[in-house]
Design a protein around this nucleic acid. Structure first.
Lengths: 297, 297
DNA sequence: TAAAAATACTCCATAGGTATTTTAT
DNA sequence: ATAAAATACCTATGGAGTATTTTTA
């Protein structure tokens, strides 16, 4: 039994004869006869009664017909589904993003994504960069947008957009009006930082090391789980913090936060797109990547 | 795309490698590679990511998998259905029977049918012989059990059981105690007969003609649509009637009907099984025929 | 380096065709 | 007598195999 035979069978039942069924599927009557004989032989049942002028279904043939129709319908569904998968209609895309990208980078792009590929339904996991990379390795997500480059052979990183960390303090902080301050001053002040896996923290540690400073020397005032929490704490006057430019710009307007320059310290970092090298990217993932990179060009 | 490729695809996903998938379906790795390449080419989508050690489904592959499973499941259902059709499990059989057979011949056989072929569900149409033969010609039924032989080239008749018509009168009729009566007497008495298409009427007309009598000479007292109605009318004292032995035996016990012999007149007839010559008989129909003929052997 | 997939090449089964015979109306 | 299906026979595509190369962890 094969798909061709099923198509053929249905064509014959619709036309009422082998010859006309053959025409319908662009075969000769001979081939059709052979196929139907093979099918009947395989099933051990006559499917047609040969009337001399055309054929008509037997009881067994009628039974066969309903199933044959179902199978071919299912095949059409499959084809449709694969086509729409490539055409990005009605497809699911599961990505992950670390805190800063998840809050400040992805949301602005969503309207553009919806507009260009209305068929893609995005699901986004959020966590710190390390967690998202772990999800990627377990293939729980197809794509990760993270704030740090975690060197792994398995994963391919491509830069999406540059970001830098700025020191911020609350409006009533004694540094609020300062144009800049020294590294030495910085170390004495309690600093609100993010959890270990955070890309921001990672970038800060690297930058401090470059300046010959042991990151451990920073006075940790609090270790908070989200960027928003850090901003909130600083706004309330709880010490200082290094936060992503991307995030602080959203909150500067309200006048609750003040940027302060630290002499000779710049903490630049990249936001990265990450994907498993060994896995091919789905059309939806490629499309999303393209929309993202165009947006942040 | 063909069934083999779908099976193969599923085997691979289950085993996690082309090589082991190939073993599972008794093919070589090379053949498997070619088939999957062909499938991917046809669909225009990668189905697997080749990892060097085995393969893993892509997003497209996962989509494909659910449909592939469905198609193969549907094929299994088809096979199961065809097998049970031949094995007489869960099959419908539509037959027709004219009045006498429908009331007195078929019902006694039903327990035996159920016992031998519990999977057959019988649907029986009832009408006069002519109607049932018409249904047969329109393929509305597969088999007819009728009381008259209607010569048609299209239909094959096989005798099932012999029947004969007897003259009956009511218990208070003046002939009730008579051992026999003459043809001349018969003609004068109002006779209750069945409708035109009835097998009983047909047999009677033939028998009278054989005796050199014009059937028109019979005095028609009433023309009723069912055998039961005829019996009822006669029991009430309304003239006489020729009815099937098969039917009258059921009602003799109550003492409401009396058989009377007519000198030199015997009205024998056959009950026939009829089927379309050009149509093959379904397993269920064959099985039913066998049960019937064994019962009335 | 080793396990697995891809590829080059070969073989044969079978899908498909042509021409003819058989069948049933 | 004729339309349609079966059959005999032929051809070519592609399914399947062997041997080898390429790939990747």
């Amino acid at each position: 039994m094969n798909f061709r035979q099923l198509e053929l069978f249905i064509a014959i039942t619709e036309k009422g004869s082998f010859s006309r069924g053959a025409e319908a599927v662009l075969l000769t009557q001979s081939t059709v006869s052979q196929h139907m004989a093979a099918l009947e032989n395989e099933l051990g049942t006559e499917l047609f009664d040969r009337l001399g002028r055309g054929v008509v279904l037997t009881a067994g043939g009628k039974k066969f017909l309903v199933h044959a129709r179902r199978i071919l319908a299912e095949r059409d569904v499959l084809r449709q589904s694969m086509a729409s998968f490539q055409g990005l209609e009605n497809t699911l895309l599961k990505i992950g993003a670390s805190n800063v990208p998840a809050n400040y980078l992805i949301p602005p792009v969503l309207p553009a994504l919806k507009q260009k590929h209305p068929g893609i339904t995005l699901t986004m996991l959020t966590g710190d960069s390390r967690e998202m990379i772990a999800c990627l390795e377990k293939s729980e997500i197809e794509l990760a947008v993270v704030g740090s480059y975690l060197s792994t052979k398995k994963i391919e990183f491509t830069p999406l957009v540059a970001d830098s960390l700025t020191l911020i303090v609350g409006p009533n902080h004694r540094w609020a009006k300062r144009a800049s301050l020294s590294l030495a001053e910085l170390i004495s002040e309690p600093c609100v930082v993010r959890e270990e896996g955070s890309g921001s923290g990672q970038a800060l540690r690297v930058a401090l090391s470059h300046r010959g400073l042991n990151p451990e020397e920073l006075t940790i005032g609090a270790r908070l789980g989200s960027n928003e929490a850090v901003l909130q704490a600083v706004a309330e006057g709880f010490g200082c913090a290094f936060v992503s430019e991307l995030s602080v710009n959203h909150n500067l307007g309200a006048g609750e936060l003040c940027k302060v320059k630290v002499d000779g310290l710049t903490v630049d970092r990249q936001i990265w797109l990450a994907n498993l090298k060994s896995r091919s990217q789905s059309p939806a993932s490629k499309a999303f990547k393209e929309v993202l990179t165009k947006f942040y060009y």
